[in-house]
Every structure is written in structure tokens, then in C-alpha cells.
Amino acid sequence: MPFFVYILFSPYKDKFYIGFTSDLENRITRHNQKSKGFTGTTNDWKIVYSESYSTKFEAMTREKQIKLWKSRSKIQQLINSKD
């Protein structure tokens, strides 16, 4: 079963969200359901980037790496690199 690291973007919040999951489609649907938490206050999240990994550990490690950047421009460069 593959694991995915993904980046979502909310135009309303003008923010990125970084996460990982084994079920990308279901996870994005859950992010767009109004609930508590960072993504729960709006329902306009769109996937703008994803990477696939064969193990949960690899995906978790990559997610942490991207989150540690704390740089919008570096995240934007990663998203643009897929084109």
C-alpha cells in the first residue's frame, strides 16, 4: 500500500497544509468537511502537490522535512518543480 505526502492550498485562507496519508482521496474529502482544527474552518482545500512512498516511515520523514522548512517560498518552489 503506498503512502502519500501531500500539500493542500486554501485560497480563502491563503495557506498551505502539509500532511501524509495512505488514502489521499478520502483524506482530502475529510479536510474539506467543516470541523475543528486547522483545515476545518474552510472547505476550499485543493491538492497542489503529492509524492508517493512505499512505507509509512518514508512518508512521515518527508512530511516532517517539508514542515521544518517553514518557508512559503520553498514550498512554492517544490510545487512548481512538478510542472
Rank of each mutant, 00 (worst) to 15 (best):
I66W: 10
F9K: 14
R62L: 05
I75M: 07
F4G: 08
I7S: 12
N26H: 11
S10W: 00
M1R: 07
M1G: 07
F16P: 04
D23S: 14
F57V: 10
A59P: 05
I79C: 11
T55D: 02
Q76G: 06
T55R: 02
S54W: 08
M60R: 03
D14M: 08
F20P: 02
N32L: 00
K13E: 07
P2K: 11
F38S: 06
I66M: 10
I75S: 03
F4M: 09
L78N: 04
Q33G: 04
D83P: 06
S10Q: 02
T55L: 06
D14S: 09
S35W: 01
N32I: 00
Q76F: 04
K13C: 05
S73K: 05
S73F: 06
H31C: 09
L24D: 14
S73W: 04
Q65K: 13
R72G: 06
S35F: 03
V48I: 15
G37F: 00
S54R: 09
K67D: 00
Y53N: 02
K82P: 01
Q33T: 07
I7N: 09
A59L: 08
M60H: 02
G40T: 00
K46D: 10
Y49P: 15
Q65G: 05
N43H: 04
E63V: 04
F4V: 11
F16R: 04
N26D: 13
G19I: 00
R30N: 09
W45Y: 08
S10P: 05
R27W: 03
T41W: 01
R27S: 05
K64Y: 12
N26E: 15
Y6V: 13
I47M: 15
E58D: 12
T42W: 02
S52K: 14
Y12W: 01
K15R: 12
Y17W: 08
E25P: 01
Y53E: 03
T61H: 07
L24C: 10
W45L: 02
T21N: 12
L8K: 08
L78F: 05
F20Q: 10
G40H: 03
D23N: 15
P11H: 11
K34V: 10
E58N: 10
L68C: 09
M1D: 06
T21H: 12
S81C: 04
R72I: 13
D14T: 03
D83R: 14
N43P: 05
M60D: 03
Y12K: 07
Y49I: 12
Y6D: 07
P11W: 11
T42L: 01
K67Y: 00
D83M: 09
L78A: 07
N32C: 01
I18D: 04
S50K: 14
L78V: 09
Y12T: 13
